[in-house]
Design a protein around this nucleic acid. Sequence first.
DNA 1: GCTTAGGATTCG
Length: 726
Amino acid sequence: MPDELSANFVYKYKDTQSSDSSQHTSIGVIFFGTLAKDFSQTVSQGDIVLLSGFTISKSPTEQTDGLHPCLLEMSSTDACVYVYSPNVVVSSLPAVVSSESRYTYVPLNELKPSRIVNVYGLVTFFKQPFPTKGTDYCSTLKITDKSNVKVSCTIFSERLEDHPKIFRIGDIIRLHRVKAQIFNGSMTLLTTLGWSTVTFDGMIDSPIEPRTSSRTFHFGEADKHAVEELRQWAASQLLANESTVPLSSVHPKMFFDLTCQLLAKARMDTRCMLLKVWDGTKCAHPLLNVAVAPDALEGQSSPSQDRENMIANVLVYDNHVEGASKLKPGMFLRLFNLHAVTQRAPEQSADCASSLCFHLHGGTSYGKGLCVLPSESPELQPLKRLLEGHVAVAGEDEVNDATLVDVWYTPPEALGQFQPLHIRAEPSEVVNEDFYTVRTCGHTLQKVSLAHVKSSTAPVVCHVRAKVKSYQPQNLYQCLKLFCPQCTTLMEVPNDEIIARVFQDALRVNQPCGEHWAVTSSVDSIRMHVSCEMVLSNTHTQLLFLQGVTLEEMSVISAAHSNVVPVCSDDERMRLLDFSAPFLFRRDKRYFGCKRCSRSTFVEPEVSGVEIWDEHNVAKALGVQLMQYALLMKFELEDETGTLEALIWEDAERFFQVTAADTSACQDSQDKVQITMDRLHPPGSSMAERPWLDLCLSAYTVEENSNQVCYQITNTEARGNLYTPL
DNA sequence: GCTTAGGATTCG
């Protein structure tokens, strides 16, 4: 045929003179028509080609040229060839190859069954990749374009990172080498061998940044234009970026998408994971707080007053647990199709207002799922500013204690409670991956040097990398303090000698006391009082008042009781002991009252309405201001630029992953603090051997101390396998 | 070894 061009390209990867057909490493290929023309204009020597839609035929010239006995012959107009140049990846179809625009994108209304095509589209529906019954994960999505035709796409890949990074409806996706097919009467697209994808934000003015796991992908002016055009069209159609719902707009029973930061997570069971998240807004409905043992919780989420209704508890079920288990506190997430469920915590009675909890139900229907958003995403910036603002405000409220600095220098008294623990630490082995620190704050800050921190104006929050040059107190039992949240008094925990003396003083005036609210029984010189009202409600075994005991007797008796209050008598009236002694013994724990803020006279305890007695309601019933246990240490930090003294105080429990109250009584918690210190500052180690610590530092001024600038380590957790010997 | 899925909730 005169108007038809033909070409015969022979690729010789290796020259061979042999006529033995098994030795042939080259074969002839025959193209016809426009494909032949386009191919001849596109290809260069050395390119790699991939052919499809060709048939094998006998070579008529085998006898004369001694080459391969077969030929590859283009069988129909469906045949296509892919040309891989060293630098650019070129895909070509019959009639579409051109030298200036090497990729051609087919509008969605022009798809033809069994064609392998490249397309651009706007995402109108998507699911996170889910495991199939086969070998791959599958992403299902639906896309549309200017033609307004909607096409479903199915993407298979066993590598999760190769799946399209779609974060929201309205994102723009580019697909290469996907096959058009009819399924159930509708056009669909399916990945084929060599497929690839890139996605873009669909917001009209956001930077055009391709999201892909591929390190080599083609992106030119034409792509930029395609994205811009789709964004324009989407905007005109009101299709673009359906926004997610802030916590402040969530109401019961709704399904919604949430953009948030992960604060903490905990495995509930094999099919359920708890995520504690926030987005910087306050929910109009009370939020449920799912209580979890502190050691089961990864990350930090202490409910505090000013964060009330800001921390959402999300229960993630079944297939979503796999993805959730990879999450780390601090990450930014998008949770798709969360269900706002009203429920009561187990301890809440039926007349209590129920609170909101969020469920990510099992399955993938309606796009249920979760994904991690890159921290630098432009759409996260407003959220991050909101969170940082909130963290800063919380910091100002909490870091205001002028007494900290003073108390630091008062010589601590020995308590004899911490047992120093000796760990074998070979100096050469101390730099160990078993120990490290992580910041759990939401700040996105560049790390700065200690010199930079010192030159900054407080208040400020900084991220640093430093080593511990020294720390105080060296005897760790001395880092345990008592703190009054009311008057901010900070004091040492009285030792047993002091407490025993208070008990002895009380014994000297051990007269009977007649309180109308109490019934009394006596064994020898020991008197036990219980509340009449509590006897009636059968809760009297929970709260005992003991008179005429020594500290030793008290310790034995309280070991078996939930709440025991030591009392004495004065003028036939019951009184509490001096506040140098604990006002309450709860099994192995002792609780102290603040001398300044507690009621000085003892009146009838207010016992109505309490079902379960703990240290808080005992203190309240007695008019006592409960003192909190707190850990206080001072680290001398060092980096290449200098040293800086930083307290570890408000976030000490977070840092050491213990509660201060536990360290007052529990050997395991004391050991944990000791081991942590031995990891970050091994005994006898040189600076070079100590680990670098990633720390979040808060700098603040103490007004009462001529505006002295103080530093605290905040939002930082010590991590690692502390129980592996170094 | 060359399939898998092919949108459509609500349980915990």
